[in-house]
C-alpha cells in the first residue's frame, strides 16, 4: 500500500534493490522470452512479426493502463471490452453519416467521428463512475451491467454488420500508416502511456488515487474528495478503451461490434494484474502494466509461432496470472513477517 507513496520520494542509489523488487521478475521474463524465441525461430524477429506484435501490444496496453487505474483505486472495469466495440461502431457510423451530409469535408468527417467515439467512452465512464461513487454500488456489478448494455447498444446500431464508409485519409492515412517506421497505434500508445505515467506520479489526481485505493478511510480523513476521483478513474478507463476502439477501426477500415469484447476485458485485467497492480488497490504502475501487455502479446505470438494449439493457450495465460499474484502475495507476507 505504501509503495505508491514511496515511489514519489527521490531515490538514492541504495534503493536499487527496492527498485528491482518493485519492477519484479517481469522484464527478466520478457527478455528471456524474446531471446529464447529469437534463437528458436528466425521468423520471430522478422519486421512483419515485430510490427504485428507492437501493434497488438499497443492496443492492449492502452486499455490495460486504464484498467490499471481503476484497479489501483480499488475497483474493476468489466465494461472496457464493450466500450471498444461501441466506440468503433459509433465512430464509423458517425463518419459515414457526416460523409453523406458533407461530402469532401474530410477534416470535419474525421473530427466528428473521433469526437463521437470518445464521447461514448466518456458517457459510459460517467455512468460507471456515478453509480460506483455516488450511489455506492459495487463496481463489479455496475460495470457488469454497463458491459451488457453497452455491447447491446453496439449491436443494435449495426445489427451485427460491419460499418463502412470512412474516409481514406482516416484508414490509409492514419490507421494503416507508419511514422518513423512504426505503426501509428504504437505512437498513440506511447503518448497515452506517458500521459498516464505523468498523471500517476506527478499529479494530485494520480497521488489521490493511490491514497483512495490504499486506505479509503485515511483518504477521507485527509480531505480527499473520494467521489470525484473515483468517477475520474472510470472515465479515464472508458476513454482509453474508446481510443483503442477508434485505433482498431482505423486499422481494420470498418466499425465492428465484435471488436474488444470479453476477451479484451479479461486480457486487460490479466495484463494489469501480471503487471503488479494489486487487486487490493493502492499499488501498481502504468509503465509496468504496459510491459506486461507487451509480454502477454509476445507470449501469444510465440505460442502461435511454436504451433502450440491455440486452444491450449488460455491455460498458459491462466496459470501465469494466478502464479504472478500468488508470488506477489507470498513476497508480501514474507516482507511483513520480517
Amino acid at each position: 500500500m505504501s509503495t505508491g507513496l514511496i515511489a514519489a520520494e527521490p531515490r538514492s542509489a541504495t534503493d536499487l534493490r527496492s527498485i528491482a523488487g518493485e519492477i519484479g521478475f517481469l522484464p527478466a521474463l520478457l527478455v528471456l522470452l524474446v531471446a529464447g524465441m529469437s534463437a528458436v525461430d528466425p521468423q520471430f524477429y522478422g519486421t512483419v512479426n515485430i510490427l504485428n506484435i507492437l501493434r497488438n501490444a499497443s492496443l492492449l496496453a492502452i486499455v490495460a493502463s486504464g484498467q490499471a487505474l481503476v484497479i489501483v483505486a480499488g475497483g474493476f472495469d468489466l465494461s472496457v471490452g464493450a466500450v471498444v466495440a461501441l466506440a468503433s461502431v459509433v465512430t464509423a457510423k458517425t463518419m459515414a453519416t457526416t460523409a453523406a451530409a458533407f461530402p469532401g469535408n474530410t477534416a470535419l468527417i474525421i473530427a466528428s467521428g473521433v469526437a463521437a467515439g470518445l464521447g461514448c467512452g466518456i458517457l459510459v465512464g460517467l455512468v460507471n463512475g456515478f453509480c460506483v461513487a455516488k450511489l455506492k454500488v459495487s463496481g463489479f456489478v455496475v460495470t457488469l451491467g454497463t458491459m451488457s448494455a453497452t455491447a447491446g447498444v453496439g449491436l443494435m446500431i449495426t445489427s451485427g454488420i460491419p460499418v463502412y464508409g470512412m474516409p481514406d485519409n482516416f484508414v490509409k492515412g492514419f490507421g494503416r500508416a507508419q511514422a518513423f517506421g512504426l505503426p501509428t497505434a504504437v505512437h498513440v500508445a506511447i503518448a497515452a502511456i506517458l500521459v498516464m505515467v505523468f498523471a500517476q506520479r506527478r499529479t494530485l489526481f494520480g497521488r489521490y488515487i493511490y491514497a483512495i485505493g490504499g486506505n479509503v478511510d485515511a483518504a477521507v480523513m485527509s480531505g480527499v474528495s473520494i467521489q470525484r476521483h473515483i468517477v475520474g478513474t472510470y472515465v479515464v478507463s472508458s476513454l482509453l478503451a474508446a481510443l483503442t476502439g477508434i485505433l482498431l477501426t482505423a486499422q481494420v477500415g470498418s466499425g465492428q461490434a465484435s471488436f474488444g469484447g470479453d476477451r479484451m476485458m479479461l486480457q486487460s485485467i490479466a495484463a494489469a494484474v501480471i503487471g503488479g497492480v494489486s487487486p487490493r488497490g493502492g499499488v501498481g504502475r502504468v509503465e509496468i502494466v504496459a510491459i506486461s501487455a507487451l509480454f502477454l502479446t509476445i507470449l501469444g505470438n510465440a505460442l502461435n509461432l511454436l504451433h502450440v494449439d491455440s486452444r491450449l493457450q488460455p491455460i498458459f495465460l491462466g496459470v501465469i496470472m494466478v502464479a504472478a499474484v500468488a508470488l506477489d502475495e507470498l513476497s508480501r507476507r514474507r516482507k511483513s513477517g520480517v
Binding site: I269, P279, P314, I315, L317, V319, V325, L330
Partner: peptide, 14 residues
C-alpha cells in the same frame, strides 16, 4: 495463497 477471488477464478476460467 490469499489471491483475490476475482483474479484466482479468472485464472481458472482461462
Amino acid at each position: 495463497f490469499k489471491v483475490n477471488p476475482f483474479v484466482a477464478t479468472l485464472g481458472s476460467y482461462n
